Simulated scan of single mutants.
Amino acid sequence: MKYLARTTDGRPLLGDEEGFVPLPAAAPDLETVADALPRAAAGTLPDLEDVPADRIDGDHRQLGPPLAEFGKLWGIGLNYEDHAGDLGEGRPEEPASFMKPSTAVTGPGGPIRLPPVEQTDGVTAEAELAVVIGRGCRNLEDESTVDDVVAGYLPVVDVTAEDVLQRNPRFLTRAKSFDTFLVVGPAIAVPEDSIDLEELTVKTIVNGEIAAENEVRNMLFPPREIVAFHSRVMTLEAGDLFSTGTPGAEPIESGDHVRADIEGIGSVEAPVVRCRRR
């Protein structure tokens, strides 16, 4: 597995299990992580063994969001049958997708800022596996072609104002769109070979306790199917992100600590604070 990341001050990095090097040291023609996405999709990122630079342990780097700007931000609701059942929802026949604004994104460490209680007093956090698109595509014929356009995978925490949503399902966009309501992981995991996504486990962890856990194999619509489906709706572009659904949502309050953990991909965490009315 290789990793694409950025420091908090914007310096792009390329890494593996042993650490990170500056991306331009590995590939002088790549100035940003966004520049590297097509090569990640093509499987042609440089081998770090050939890079004349010392690796630095990721624990000794402060990492921000791996992209300065993401493209379209898609979310998928009710994608685990167990979760849909918990909410009293029937099995959807097609992906139940929604979009979030770019201003919802916050980097690893957050914090997740809860809106004033006058706006919402029922917020939940959800760990999810996200797919990052590496190159533009349209009308993918089937799932077998998806790996050719995917740069890699990312752990995220999706956040929802559940009480807003419960008032009316048409309020979904608003319930998902508050600032900091999408915490993105510190590094895009780029598989060197085709990865068996079904084997991955997604965990929502709050205050050190596992609140929800499930395997990707139990998704109603697997990640590759989600990408292929949406490519037949619109053109997908490098930097677009699909957050593929959660095994379960957990209520959060100010003072809590949330973590999304995805076996084999990585983790991201953030504290929770409450904003005051201005």
Results as ranks from 00 to 15, higher is better:
Leu87Glu: 14
Gly110Glu: 05
Thr103Cys: 07
Gly85Gln: 13
Ala104Glu: 01
Val123Trp: 01
Gln119His: 12
Leu87His: 10
Glu126His: 11
Pro111Glu: 03
Leu114Lys: 04
Phe98Cys: 10
Met99Lys: 01
Ile76Ala: 11
Thr106Lys: 06
Ala125Ser: 14
Ile76Asp: 01
Pro95Gly: 05
Phe98Gly: 09
Gly107Asp: 01
Leu114Ile: 08
Ile76Asn: 06
Glu89Gln: 15
Leu78Arg: 11
Ile112Ala: 10
Gly109Ala: 04
Ala104Ser: 15
Gly77Val: 03
His83Lys: 04
Glu118Asp: 12
Pro115Ile: 08
Val132Met: 04
His83Pro: 04
Leu114Arg: 05
Glu93Asp: 15
Glu81Lys: 09
Arg113Lys: 13
Glu81Ile: 09
Val131Pro: 01
Leu129Arg: 04
Val132Tyr: 02
Gly110Arg: 01
Pro111Val: 00
Gly90Arg: 09
Ala127Arg: 09
Val131Ala: 05
Glu118Pro: 03
Arg91Asp: 12
Met99Glu: 13
Leu87Arg: 13
Leu78Gly: 06
Ala96Pro: 02
Phe98Gln: 06
Asp86Asn: 08
Gly88Ser: 10
Pro108Gln: 07
Glu81Thr: 08
Gly122Val: 08
Pro95Ala: 05
Gly75Asn: 05
Leu78His: 12
Asp82Ile: 10
Gln119Ile: 14
Ala130Pro: 08
Pro111Leu: 01
Glu128Thr: 06
Glu81Leu: 14
Tyr80Phe: 15
Gly109Ser: 04
Leu114Thr: 07
Gly110Asn: 05
Pro92Ile: 03
Thr120Asn: 11
Val131Trp: 02
Pro116Gly: 06
Thr124Ser: 07
Gln119Ala: 13
Gln119Val: 13
Pro111His: 02
Thr124Val: 14
Thr120Ile: 01
Glu128Lys: 04
Asn79Trp: 09
Glu126Gln: 12
